[in-house]
Amino acid sequence: MIEIFGVPLMALYSQLMLGLVNGSFYALLSLGLAVIFGMLNIINFAHGALYMIGAFCAWMLLSKFNIGYFEALLITPLILGLIGVIIERLLLKWLYQVDHLYGLLLTFGLALIFEGYFRSQFGVSGETYDIPEILDGPVNLGFMVIPKYRLWVIFLSLIVCVLTWFMVEKTRLGSYLRAATENPKLTQAFGINVPLMVMLTYGFGVALAGFAGVMAAPIYQVSPLMGSHLIIVVFAVVVIGGMGSISGAIISGLGLGIIEGLTKVFYPPLSSTVVFIIMAIVLIFRPAGLFGREK
């Protein structure tokens, strides 16, 4: 059997696949953060809490209304998007003129309120969401037996990531968005409704968090703290990719998931810090991140 540093090649492949699954979640979440930061200049600290609400939303749809997983994949992002729009209209819009720090503090406060509310309602242990029947069970890939659901996560998140990238970078709507970020006043002078675009962008970013929440519900326990466990790593991913860079968020999300997976094979205690070590190194040599532009 071929071995690399004492680890059989087959085992290494399996860990790579698992890293890719985690990377898919990093990519989806950091994508939402990147879109929001890129367009609104808001560091959305509530992203983890909104991802958690997405997971709870799926759980509630199933347990209270008997609405299944696939419907939840469509309905939850819509509900979360609406929540995002309300947050933007009521709170965030007052902060665009002031320092980034205010947006960060506001969204951090929101995250604490959301988490506190769900904790008081559901307790920290949370709820269980079963894997939908059609995706339940394992698939034999030759080198490993992987649950079908995990493959589905990789597949679906890649599609969503590519679609988002395409929409922002390659369509007319995307070019309006980018223009509105670069120079809102000039863009508005061309007759484009910039406040509306900003509102929808935030709604879209939040919807992405909700979407990731639904995808996570069958794998992880649906619990009020699930977002706060993840958000710090996701921020590190965004910083490594370059704040506001869509492709940077996707590539670094997947890449770091894989690196983290490999760390779990070779030296597990380092796996929770490896992302931050990479972040420190990247910041030393490329302060704007791997794919970010210096302003």
Binding site: A11, S14, Q15, L18, V21, N22, M144, I219, Y220, M226, H229, L230, G261, K264, V265, P268, P269, S271, S272
Partner: peptide
């Protein structure tokens, strides 16, 4: 195998 505390994804260790 020791895993960091807390760990969200334990599948690598379970394998």
């Amino acid at each position: 195998v020791s895993h960091p505390f807390p760990s969200r994804d334990l599948s690598s260790y379970l394998l």
